[in-house]
Every structure is written in structure tokens, then in C-alpha cells.
Design a protein around this nucleic acid. Sequence first.
DNA 1: AACCTCACG
DNA 2: ACGTACGTGAGGTTC
Length: 448
Amino acid sequence: MEAIPDQKMTEYSCEDADYTFQLVDKLMIELKEKNLWDLFKKIEMPLISVLAQMERNGIKVDVKILEKLTKQLMIYEKQLTEKIYELGGKEFNINSPLQLKKILFEDLKISIIGIKKIKTGISTAAGELEKMKGSHPIIDLILEYREIFKLKSTYSEALPKLVNLKTERIHTNFNQTITATGRLSSSNPNLQNIPVRGKFCKEIRMAFIAEKGCKLIAADYSQIELRVIASLSNDEKMIQAFKNKEDIHIRTAAEINECKLSEVSQEMRQQAKAINFGIIYGMGAYGLAQRTGISPSRAKKFIEKYFEIHKDIKNYLEEIKERAKEKEYVETLFGRRRYLPEINSKMFQVQNAAERMAINMPVQGTAADLIKIAMIRINQQLINNKQRCKMLLQVHDELIFEVKTQDIAFFQKIIKQEMEESSEAKKFKVPIDVKIKIGDNWGEMEEF
DNA sequence: AACCTCACG
DNA sequence: ACGTACGTGAGGTTC
């Protein structure tokens, strides 16, 4: 790839070289002492070249689609801006939370009971505005404006600037040494946060296209973090649910509401989903209530019920906190560590925050280890066939490939197999399930 | 540079 | 009594 800048060549003296070797030695010893040498040798070292290859590959982008979308978004933005000025009584910068606050709470006198306070006063985050929805028509417009502006500024306008002129592709950076949990991160641009839920997300994703004569394959681990916690905690009930290929959220909903699987409503499933995710994040009853809109007392009952049924998970969470306090670190199934000295802090909220990190890291980190291993193994298989199948992106539990159309069946099988059935995937007490989708672009993919 | 907000898993 | 779910990156405003 041409855009890679020339490395700055520094001239080293012999003394510098000696010093460098000493540092490397020290680092190696530290890795060995902390029991991280195996992890480094097995995962991080081989992953370096996989990521370098992915960065060189890049993903093809149809700039025209994004430019067209930008124009459309600008029209919406203008219409919304005018309406908001009218309702607000004057022109102001809608992107400024400070100015927005003045309009909403001083001029329009919208009630702020129960709205979250932050450092600089009242929060105007979407979740808080959501609570004021009924009190003034301007709220809906602000929310819509924010959505449109975000799409335009962060995606449809910004992405074309990062398309390499020679390759017509976007080459993101995959950062291997940033996160506390072992995940990768992506920057310049971040291709791990391309919209997928809201309005116009399909249009944005449709701009990421397969090369002529190729298709994109997306392979994602289904419910990987819940499978990980089921396995780590050895929770028989949850393991059984995954073995039976049940919808885990429906199952949870039936359990906490004490009803049949068939009696679970959409809303009940939604609440159960929030609980399942909350468990992974170490949430409390208050947090659950905030996010689901149910009352704190009801949320508390749901959580109690959940732990009553999943005693193994409850025990696991207690144990992991205890062990973290003793060792001041937590670790993944593959031995990756996160040091958490603050877990023994005397400050209540500092310690609490560390406890939540202690709960989350082994789950998030084990999933990260698993996909990294899969990437290395798949790359091994691609090495002789790079022209026919390229690994393009990783989005935490998902891998995107570009494959020659005639080779789809061949590589699809390899990818799924390496992700689901490697010896490492078999270390889990639950089956690992990978969903495959195929399409001409990232926005229109069909499940296989 | 800090802060806010918001996109993703 | 406390504040309230984990992990990221980016664009905007304000100082």
C-alpha cells in the first residue's frame, strides 16, 4: 500500500543497541514472570502479520454512494435546523450542548425532574432527551437532528477523505496494543463502529463493496459473550440452553417471569436481554431499571430471580471478585491478564468500578482471544490463496472477507470450521456457533 | 486539552 | 452512604 509513510530511520550507536537489547530482555523476563509468554507466542506475535495484511488489503468503498447520501442528509439537516430555530425562538448552535441547554431549560422551561446531572450541569444526551419527549415538540427534532448530523459528519463526509486514491479502498489501522481487555481497536477511520441500527445505516454500509468478481463474506460468533460466561461459570442451565440451540433471551425471560417459552412477549424478551447483558457488565438493579424503563424494585426482583436460577453464575461472580482482590488481576481462559490494583481501594466507587471491570474483562477478553486465534488459523489457510480470499475487517465478534465468487463455498466452509471447531473453541463447555452472511456489499447480506 | 455526545461490539 | 453496566474512536464545542 502506497500510503504507508516511510519509516523514520534513526541511526543507532552501539550503546543504543545495547540498551535496546537490555530493554527487550527485561520485557521478555517480565512476560515470563507474569505468565504471559505463552499468550504472546501463541496469539499476539503471529497476529501482527495478520493485521498488517488486513491493513494492506483494505476494503473497497463506492465514494459516489456516500456523496449522494451526504447531499440527502444536508437537505434533511437544513429542514430540521429551520424548524428547531422556529420552535426555539432564535438561531443557535444545535451542536453546542451549552447553547442547547439554555434554549431548552431557560427559554422553553422544560421540566428537568429526574434528568441526569453531569460535570457541567444538566445532560442533554439522547437518553435524557428521550425522557422529555412529551413535554415539547422540539425534543424530537433535536434527536433527529443529532442522528442526521452524526451520520453526515462522522461517516458520509469523513469516509471518502480516507479512500486511498490508488487502491480505491479504505485502509484502517488495527491497533493491537490499546485495549485493557485484549480486544483490537480500529482507527483512521474506525471501521468497527459503522452504523448498523438506525436510519440510513443500510445506505452507509452499502458503500462498502466487494471487488468486481467477488463477494463479501461476514462470519460472526453468535452470542459469544454469553456463551463465554456460561462456560467460565460452568452454569449447567445456561450451557444446556446453548446445547439445545434455544433463543437464550427467550429462555431467560421465561425463567424470570416463571412462564412457558411460548408465553414470552417481545417486551419480556427485551427485558431479559438487558439482564443478560447487564450480568456481563456487572450492573446493579438501578442500572437495569434505568435502561429498561421498569421500576427499580421490579428490576431488583428480576435480578434476584435470575441469580436464584443461575446459582453458578452468582457464585462465579463472587469468586472472581474475591480472586481479583487477592491477586489484583483477573485473567481470560487463555491467560491474558488485566491488573486491577484499584480493586482494593478504600474509596467506595473506585473499588466498585474495579469490580465491574473484574467481572467484564474475562468475558470480553476470552471472546477477543478466541477470535484472534481464529484469525491466525484462517490466515494460515489463506496464505497460499491470498488472491482468492482476503481477510478485510474484524469487528470484535465478526470477520469480513472478500472472496472470488467461484470460491465462496470453499472458503465459507474453512472460515466457519476454523471459528467453530478449532481445538481452542473446543475448550469451551458450550458449542460455538458462527453465522455466515454473504453479499455484494456490507449493507445487503443474506444469511446462509 | 477537556468535555460531551454517540457510533459500534 | 455512594452512584449507578464493560470496552473502544471520532467529531463537535469550549476554554
